[in-house]
Nucleic acid binder design. Structure first.
Lengths: 138, 138
DNA sequence: CTAAGTGCAAAATGTTTGCATACTT
DNA sequence: AAGTATGCAAACATTTTGCACTTAG
């Protein structure tokens, strides 16, 4: 599951991702982006490299809805160094995906573990609901 | 968005769902089940009725992963009468979907609202992680 | 030279849609 | 009769896969 070879495709993909840390993107976005570049990447390769990077923990993957495409996000190595945990909220109305840094929320991790024997994965968990804007504009 | 006619298909679908409250099922499961019955239901109808029932709040829908099919669960009318809130945990290893009744967790609802102005929807939110069994059997 | 990665086109998957027909009211 | 739901088959969108070819080590 570890990538063995350093290929051109992997390089330019990672280089690009590093320029958009924290931004959300789909596999399609990546294909689209590199289509307009001098050196495109085949879509199978995009999917395979993204899967690879998810396994390596360099990017996260969010399955926000069955109909919409999966959403990725570059994290980089900083997360492994005990960096801040980040939760996500997805607005069911406007579709916005919101980042959330919150120490109190981190406590639910230990709560889940102690009380429910469930090892919560904050990187994959998404809170669904209605964001402030959408709630007010109603 | 409200169903106007009381059709045979809707009736037998609801009758069946009432026999499996809280159980998880996919649109495919339903098609499969009724295929072996004396009166099958077309798959478009299954999808359309399930969507309808979600809108009416009689069933919940969970998008667990982009590749897997959406997962439904019959709730019935009891939820509307302020019944207990129920969270879900999805094991990333064995794929199990676990029900969770927990008062402490309900507090994160108010936390999200007060501190992050986000109206959490417990019916749609799924916690991802590793379940006890999978954690121990490693 | 060997193992691994790439890219195309085709397949697979889950879901949605167009439309003629059938059913509810 | 008018309005709605059904069911089939075809359309869709996203993702995966088979396989011959290329590239990294």
């Amino acid at each position: 599951m570890k990538s063995k070879y350093k290929t051109r495709q992997r390089e330019i993909l990672l280089d690009y991702l590093k320029t958009i840390p924290g931004k959300h993107f789909t596999a399609g976005d990546i294909c689209e982006y590199f289509k307009s570049q001098e050196s495109p990447i085949g879509q199978s390769t995009v999917y395979r490299q993204l899967e690879e990077l998810v396994n390596e923990g360099l990017i996260n993957k969010y399955n926000l809805s069955a109909s919409d495409p999966a959403c990725f996000e570059y994290i980089g190595e900083n997360v492994h160094s005990g960096g801040e945990v980040c939760f996500h909220c997805k607005c069911e109305k406007c579709g916005k995906l919101i980042h959330l840094h919150c120490d109190e929320l981190i406590e639910i991790q230990s709560h889940m573990m102690e009380k429910h024997q469930f090892m919560l994965d904050p990187l994959r968990t998404v809170f669904y609901g209605i964001c402030e804007e959408c709630r007010c504009s109603e």
